[in-house]
Simulated scan of single mutants.
Amino acid sequence: MRLTKAQASKFLLRKHGLVGRHVFSGKSGILSFIEQAGCIQYDPIDICGRNADLVLQSRIEGYKKTDLYELLYSERKFIDYWDKNMSVISVSDWPYFQRTRTDHEQDTYYQKSILGVYDRVREALHEKGPCCSKDIGLHEKVRWPWGETRTSRAALESLYFRGELIVHHKKGTVKYYDFAYKWLPGHILSASDPNKTEKEYFMWHVKRRIGSAGMLWNGPSDAFLYIRGLDSKARASAFESLRAAGDIVNIEIEGISKEFFMLSSDIPLLERTLSETYEPRLELIAPLDNLIWDRKLIEAVFGFEYRWEIYSPPAKRKYGYYVIPMLYGERFIGRAEPVCERGSRTLRVKNVWLEQGQKLPEKEWRDCIERFSKFNECNNIIREDCR
């Protein structure tokens, strides 16, 4: 199948519910989108909403931050766990991550200094219920993958990675843990790994990531982060096996030499998309959005180069600390720097940078900012981009 860049971009945006009328709405829309995406990436930094919430606000009509929180910690439809780094996944996907849990249990390099305190952590959880690291009381420092940390935090995270604990709830970014058996259905906890071999696991996970992004190519990509053990040879084998099984189809995009792949099950959606026209919508896109997991692919298809500069030294930033893409209709038209000032409940739009040749559609931008302000529970909007 051969597509133009415009057709490929149109399909990707329709797949993600980012063009035309909203196709996802309310909690049922969140459930549908995450079922389609497999996971959405979590990041704790909150300048104008955390990444998972930013992903959803651009797609889910009427989205509120409390919706995802309730689905995670009240209704238990989702769970925090490692997929593409720390992510939100469906509880029903728990059995597929048995290999991840086993790997953590067998990786004792960082666990040597905390093995002796696991029972004390368990006792505290039995006695107190859900606990954060400060509740446990083990304040000695130990070496941990992301630097020195208190023993209680390392022990809780280790038991969490191994699947004995889950994140029961959060207060801000502080995680409170409890035993998985108290909160996850027994049939989920006792289910065996559906992937019997490593090859099956790689095929399942590569297919999951293709479906999540909408379209990928077989090459090094952030879209394949944290598929444990997946090297270039295993990735190529997974692509070939999925194609042979009829699960994915190859796509040629005019003007791009690399071969793309999409889910075979998305072909009807592609065909409908190419025959339809959509009213343009203006949305602010999360920095770790599923759509832009592979930024080189996005640059090739959309002609839009995006780099999240949050970890760049200030002197090396081209735009700013937390700058996010602006999507209008079927094109990325620029970048914006919105900042929420919590004390005054003000959304401040510090700057807008438009792509060459693009004009800011004032009405749609105003509507977008008003929705974004409501999403962030702000009462005031200051637009410095108007200066």
Rank of each mutant, 00 (worst) to 15 (best):
6 A>G: 05
17 G>L: 09
18 L>Y: 08
20 G>C: 11
21 R>D: 15
22 H>W: 13
22 H>R: 14
31 L>K: 08
35 E>H: 01
36 Q>F: 02
41 Q>I: 00
56 L>Y: 03
68 L>I: 06
69 Y>G: 07
69 Y>H: 11
83 D>C: 15
86 M>G: 15
88 V>H: 13
90 S>I: 14
93 D>K: 08
96 Y>C: 06
104 H>G: 00
112 K>A: 05
116 G>D: 10
117 V>M: 08
117 V>Q: 07
119 D>Q: 12
119 D>H: 10
120 R>D: 10
120 R>K: 14
125 L>V: 11
129 G>T: 11
130 P>N: 09
143 R>N: 07
146 W>F: 01
150 R>P: 02
151 T>S: 01
153 R>C: 02
158 S>N: 09
169 H>L: 13
180 A>Q: 09
183 W>R: 13
193 D>K: 03
193 D>R: 06
194 P>E: 00
194 P>K: 04
197 T>Q: 01
197 T>L: 03
199 K>W: 03
203 M>G: 00
217 W>K: 14
228 R>E: 09
228 R>P: 04
233 K>P: 04
245 A>H: 11
250 N>K: 15
267 I>W: 11
276 E>N: 01
279 E>W: 05
280 P>I: 02
286 A>M: 03
294 D>L: 08
294 D>W: 04
301 V>C: 10
303 G>Y: 13
321 Y>C: 12
325 P>T: 12
328 Y>Q: 06
330 E>P: 08
332 F>V: 08
344 S>W: 02
345 R>G: 04
346 T>D: 00
353 W>F: 03
359 K>W: 11
362 E>Y: 15
363 K>L: 15
382 I>P: 07
